[in-house]
Design a protein around this nucleic acid. Structure first.
Lengths: 241, 241
DNA sequence: ACAGTCTAACTGTGATCACAGATCGCGGCA
DNA sequence: TGCCGCGATCTGTGATCACAGTTAGACTGT
């Protein structure tokens, strides 16, 4: 049973209390965000090496925030440190890709279901906005792969945020961090998949299902989207072992 | 398509190649493991504060590995740093507890299903072993709450490992890290729930279902286990707001 | 010309120093 | 006796130094 009393029993609400939420953003946090965006958007290819000092110099900070950010990414296997003490984007084996895809189907499939149940009107507006952005890029005469990848990400996460389960969103972010390099790097290498891959149709089904509150259809559309992309990646033959 | 050629095309297998896997275990990693165990087993209560320097002195290391470990735990919200620059175990609000429980039901429920499908004989042996350990503790005339909590954890994770999806196991570890303090701290405070809570029956159903390969029954048993514990925690009325 | 060795540079990890901000307690004033 | 103010102390964060281990390149000896 929850305590339903006021969270501020001794203080009266005041105007200044509205914006007292100043988030503590450390340098390490900013470096982490930067590296995360690079990984999720596929701008860092699998196997690419980096050094703490070079990243620090590039970003204009000392080595300290970089090692904190890299330590976090290494901890969840979004980066790896070789026995040679070299940091690189992990290579993707076929087995690991299939494992990540299996987990994604379960977790993101559940998120799609839940989004169809819990979506608010503001969520639906955001979802429609990013779907249009993706469609505009996919139908463009000369698609910008980078923008398409980012619009695809924003659409998916708009759906996931509609679940109202930020913990679940965080889990999915971790999954995209691991699979982003291979997924988006290969996707950007062959932009014609934008039109032939069926992503637009899957997105349309997904948005329609979430809009209608049809959880089963939402899961089905998302599963088809993930499996379509996964099949394309496996067909490229670039995975190891 | 996967490359099915030998992973060592140029080298012939030798005896020394068998144990070439020397894992790099840094001090920061060991501190992280230590703090994680303390959190998951409920030995650190919600709201408990700590300082990097005191932890470092206790563990006999410098502040450097501790801040790396704490930074990782703060990043995934297993710890939090207040605006006062104080590190503490986060307090659990009722809303957050329910959110975590909802995610656990989905993720761990899927894991139970998958375990029932993919379990190997060695997995089943481990599962049976930890179930007996938990039963022995639950039926003991004077149960040791600490050992019971650890046996419960080992049983659950033996099931999760049987999925053959280490990524999924990592995700669940993150969830237990967040919910462990409230779950196990309150559980240890009232040991009589060991007999009355029905955990033993849920475990029996779970093990039987996994053993029989009945995915639906495995999910049902696990869901019942989680919901039983969650209902108990909510009934204690210790959650905030 | 070629092979072996040795040095110099670079790697991540750990320790120490420096600093701004917050907290708490002691002392003095009313 | 009660309240305000100031300083000592403790906090996490960032920078710098130190070090073991690896690597790559140049240099020397044959």
């Amino acid at each position: 049973m929850c305590n339903l009393s006021s969270p501020n029993p001794t203080k009266t609400p005041s105007a200044v209390a509205q914006i007292d939420r100043l988030e503590r953003v450390t340098l390490g946090e900013r470096v982490h965000t930067k590296l995360r965006d690079l990984l999720m958007s596929g701008e860092l290819a699998p196997g690419q090496k980096m050094s703490l000092r070079s990243v620090a110099e590039t970003l204009g900070v000392s080595m300290m925030p970089v090692r904190e950010a890299v330590a976090r990414l290494v901890a969840d296997q979004s980066l790896e440190v070789l026995p040679n003490r070299a940091v690189r984007v992990p290579l993707m084996t076929c087995a690991r890709f299939r494992e990540l895809t299996a987990v994604r189907l379960a977790v993101e499939g559940f998120a799609a279901e839940q989004a169809a149940r819990s979506r608010a009107e503001s969520d639906l507006a955001a979802i429609r906005h990013f779907e249009e952005a993706f469609l505009a890029e996919a139908r463009s005469p000369e698609p910008d792969a980078d923008r398409a990848v980012r619009a695809n990400k924003e659409l998916h996460f708009a759906v996931y945020r509609a679940t109202g389960l930020p913990t679940l969103v965080g889990i999915i972010e971790g999954l995209w961090l691991k699979i982003g390099p291979v997924l988006n790097f290969d996707l950007k290498a062959s932009a014609e998949r934008l039109r032939t891959g069926g992503a637009a149709e899957h997105h349309r089904s997904l948005v329609a299902a979430v809009n209608a509150g049809d959880a089963a259809a939402a899961r089905k559309a998302l599963v088809a989207d993930i499996e379509g992309a996964a099949g394309f990646i496996e067909s490229t033959g670039r995975l190891l072992e």
